[in-house]
Amino acid sequence: MEHSHDAHGHAPEPYKYAAHHSEEEGKKTRRMIWNMFWVLLAITTVEVTLGLVWKHLEISWGVVKMTFIILTVAKAYFIVAYYMHLKHERKALKNTIIIPFVLFALYLLYHIFTEGIYSEYMDKYFF
């Protein structure tokens, strides 16, 4: 068939993707999975403990809040990079997924921070 040949006239290889791995690779993957599990568990434990004790410590709420957010983003990174395997995907795929999301998320937050002030007027004049 004409269309099944590429520009150089070679018959293309059948479409392939990484679907299998060997026993040794499996062992390595499983070790990574459990290591990540301990990391995620440790972060969650720190979060819950901090949530329960921060009022008894000499830390300001702002610092606690930022710590929560940083730990959460770290957790999200570990889940997406390792469990969802994004770290080992092709660069094109990584960019296609991460860039639009981050861009729109920041755009949304920007609008909330800058335009949200109008809620004050709504409270005053409409309710």
Binding site: P12, Y15, A18, H20, E89
Partner: peptide, 24 residues
């Protein structure tokens, strides 16, 4: 066992059988 599995051409996504994303 080989590291890759062959997919039929219906599942492959354009690009002359070469997905730019390396994903189905």
């Amino acid at each position: 066992m080989s590291n890759t599995a062959t997919m039929d051409s219906k599942t492959a996504w354009g690009g002359n059988n070469e997905s730019p994303y390396g994903a189905s």
